[in-house]
Structure formats: structure tokens, C-alpha cells
Design a protein around this nucleic acid. Structure first.
Lengths: 239, 239
DNA sequence: GAGTGGTCTAGACCACGCG
DNA sequence: GCGTGGTCTAGACCACTCG
């Protein structure tokens, strides 16, 4: 939202135009020199903006030719990166509902202690939430938050969005995550909280989430019913 | 492998050091100004290298402090991005074996025509390969390659690596892919070629792969046995 | 040969963390 | 106040595409 940054503003403007289809797919953008004149800035600043566009799949830069606009409509919606459920469902525009199934401050067991690099004295917030989409409980989110970073938390916050609270109220900066996707057998807990039909397996997304100062503050497990799971990504081949 | 690029060379050197543990986790790298002196280059060039390190999860840059080294050992290895099976299994260092189950030039059906944006006259190479790891057939790869881009192909090439052939022999530049991960019910074909035990579902990774000139040349479906599937990624939260 | 993007430079000013 | 990374500039040379 900051408009201090010239290159971010340019990136926003160009990506919006591409998303809205105002620029034709497979045609080139104006050259870097032209853009530099148009935006009254230097070429390096334009290049920063264009590199962002390329990283996010909006354009393909070809040496000697120009920056070709890619078809971004077919992507439907990239769900890679680090996005909270509330942000995700808002983007999807689907009716969704969150139920807090478990909430409390606990002394972590060995597994969680290890996942969060905790000492014997540390406490964590344990939050288990089910997500209902189009009338079915489909996702079970289990969060473990280090109390050192999140001293205070309520059930009401968890019903809304933990990330919103952390970023807007606590002013902490969530920075990056190590993410793992695997498939596991359903547990009793899954059957208890989700509408699982006859599925015996469940897709599990595990996240270790870090703050800007590189401290690990959250371990999250997101369990998705097989038939409703979808992960979309844009990948570049690095040379 | 090119060492023309100063910033790439610096990125390689620094990432190697971090991977080998020669730099301590949670300590900072030398400052950008120091590195600029050490490598006899300008600060912007150093910053290009450091940005690459940050994007790939090696460091976290903090304003006013420095570039903090992250623990890259716990990542095992990120399998995101765009990597062929041969490259992947080499990185894993596991015994693996590829069997070409089907190979030929076909007139594509409606579905493949749509996936590859083909016309009525176009032909595609259809390649079905099973991958045996540690004695079990676990992955079924189905590739569809546009003959306009790959005029010639042999079974022997498919037994080795199609990507190696495309990049090293044909000198084509594979550039980016749109990737989707879902879970589907097993098909007859899955049961025929894979050691599926009693699993009823299978993880499916679908890729649309593009060349540097943004032309779509390949549609790939990679079907993984549930219990052996694992996807690891490093994600940054964009603001 | 003209135009494109890719790399690199040497400087400048700013916002932030820390003592 | 000092050092850090973040942004921005104006210029340079190169490799590449295309007519």
C-alpha cells in the first residue's frame, strides 16, 4: 500500500493493467527506455518494476526483443507464497466460515517443542480451527504459536484472523515460511471435525513461519480434504 | 555455469559457503559495503547477489542490521521451481530407474489440443514413463510435446532425460511453467504401471511448460503415489 | 545498424537499529 | 551519531534480435 516506492507503484500500475486485460497478451510493453521517460525515472528503477512483473508471471523478458505480456487469466489464482486462510477466501470470493474447535495455552509436547525450537519453560498457544466452504467442513488448521512472540491471544481473534491481529495490532512483521506438502492417513481428529466422506487420506501442508528478525514464531499444520485441495504456482527455471 | 556474471559468481560463492556451514547460522554476513570492497565491485552488484540469496532462503536482510544467515540444513532441499526428474533424483542421490512405457507421435485428442493450444494439423510426442525408486514404481510421468518445437525424439532420449536433450542438443531455453498440484482417483493406467498397494488416490502435478520466447511447448502430468509424495518450498510474504 | 534488455559503476539520500 | 540496508540516478558497455 505504500506509494513511497516508485518501482512498487510502477509494478502495481503495470500489473493492474495486465490483470484487467488492458495490455494485449503476446505483445510487448514499451521498452525500458520509453518507460523511463514516461514515468520520469531512471532505467534501473523501471527494471526493478519489470523484474517484479517477471517474477510473478506477468511478463517474459527477452533480450533484444522486449518484455512480452503473458496470459495471466489462465492462472486462475496463484496460491503459492504465504497467505492466511482469511486472505485466501477473500480472494476466492467463496462463502466460508471458521469454527474454533480448540483454544488454549499449553505446555508443548516433545514434537511441538522440537518444531518451534522451544525450551522446557516455554508455552505455546494451541489453536484448532475448522473451515467450512460451501457448506462442508473441508480444512482443519492446527496452529502452535510461541508465547514469547504472541503474549496475548483470544478465541475471538482466532475466529477472525490471527495474521491480521499479529500484523495490524502487534505490528509484527511476518516474513517467510518453510513449507512442506505431504499426504497422510486421516486421524481420529480429522474424522471428528471434518466432513471426510470415505477418504482415508488427507493432504497436509506444514509451515514453519518466521518473523522479520528471523525468529521462528509459529508452526502450522493445515489438513485439506483430498478432493478439495489445489495448489497453483508459477515457477521459473533457474540457470 | 557462466562466470561472466560477477553477481552470479558472488551468489554462488556465498551460497556454497552457507550450504557447507562455513558461515554460522544467525550471524550476519559482512556488510554490503565491506563485500563491495572484498569483491572489488560496486555495492549494487553485491546487492544483486544478496537479493538472490534472500529469494532462495539463504539469508534474511534486515534494515539497519545486516544480512542474517538462515538455517538451510533443515530445508533438506527445496523441490519447488522447475526441475526434471533426472536432475531431481541426482540431487537426491537415490537409486532410480526410468522405464519408457509408451512412446510415439500422435494426433492429439481434444483435451491435449486444448492444453497445448494446438491446431487441427498439429502432432505431439506422447511419452509415458514410470520411475522406480528403491525398488518400487512410484511415479508415472506423462509428457505431451508439441512437434513444432521438438521435431525429432527417440525412445532412448526419453530413457535418459528429455530436458537434457532439449537444452543441450536442441539449444532451446526452457523458461517457466505454470504448475498445479491436485489429488485424483487412480486410473487403470496407474494400476497398470505403478506399485500402488491399496491406495485409491494419487497426487497429480500438472505442468504447462514454456520456452524463452513464451511459446508453450509441453504439457506434463506427473502422478505420484500418495505416501511417497513430498513438496518443499520456501515462501516469502509479499507486502 | 538501430533498438532491445543485461550488467556494472560511483555516487547520492533515506529509514532504520543500536549503543 | 554511526553503520546498516533500501531506493534512486545518469551514465557506460555488452549481447542479442531483427530488418
Amino acid at each position: 500500500m505504500k506509494t513511497n516506492n516508485k518501482y512498487l507503484a510502477i509494478f502495481q500500475e503495470l500489473s493492474d493493467r495486465i490483470k484487467q486485460g488492458l495490455v494485449k497478451v503476446n505483445e510487448t510493453l514499451p521498452s525500458e527506455n520509453e518507460l523511463a521517460v514516461q514515468y520520469e525515472t531512471s532505467r534501473e528503477t523501471i527494471r526493478k518494476a519489470l523484474n517484479l512483473l517477471a517474477q510473478n508471471g506477468y511478463i517474459q523478458k527477452v533480450k533484444g526483443k522486449g518484455s512480452i505480456v503473458l496470459d495471466v487469466t489462465k492462472m486462475s489464482f496463484p496460491v503459492s507464497g504465504l497467505v492466511s486462510f482469511k486472505e485466501l477466501s477473500q480472494n476466492l470470493g467463496r462463502t466460508s466460515q471458521t469454527t474454533v474447535e480448540k483454544f488454549g495455552l499449553i505446555k508443548p509436547g516433545d514434537f511441538i517443542m522440537q518444531q518451534l525450537n522451544l525450551g522446557a519453560r516455554d508455552e505455546v498457544w494451541e489453536v484448532v480451527r475448522s473451515r467450512k466452504i460451501d457448506g462442508e467442513n473441508i480444512i482443519l488448521d492446527k496452529d502452535y504459536l510461541n508465547r514469547r512472540h504472541i503474549p496475548f491471544l483470544t478465541k475471538e481473534i482466532c475466529e477472525d484472523s490471527i495474521y491480521r491481529y499479529i500484523e495490524e495490532e502487534l505490528k509484527l512483521k511476518i516474513s517467510f515460511a518453510k513449507k512442506e506438502i505431504v499426504v497422510e492417513e486421516c486421524t481420529e481428529e480429522d474424522y471428528q471435525y471434518l466432513d471426510l466422506k470415505n477418504f482415508q487420506h488427507i493432504v497436509v501442508v506444514k509451515n514453519h513461519v518466521y518473523l522479520e528478525d528471523t525468529s521462528l514464531f509459529q508452526y502450522t499444520v493445515s489438513r485439506h480434504r483430498l478432493d478439495k485441495f489445489r495448489f497453483v504456482d508459477f515457477a521459473r527455471r533457474g540457470h
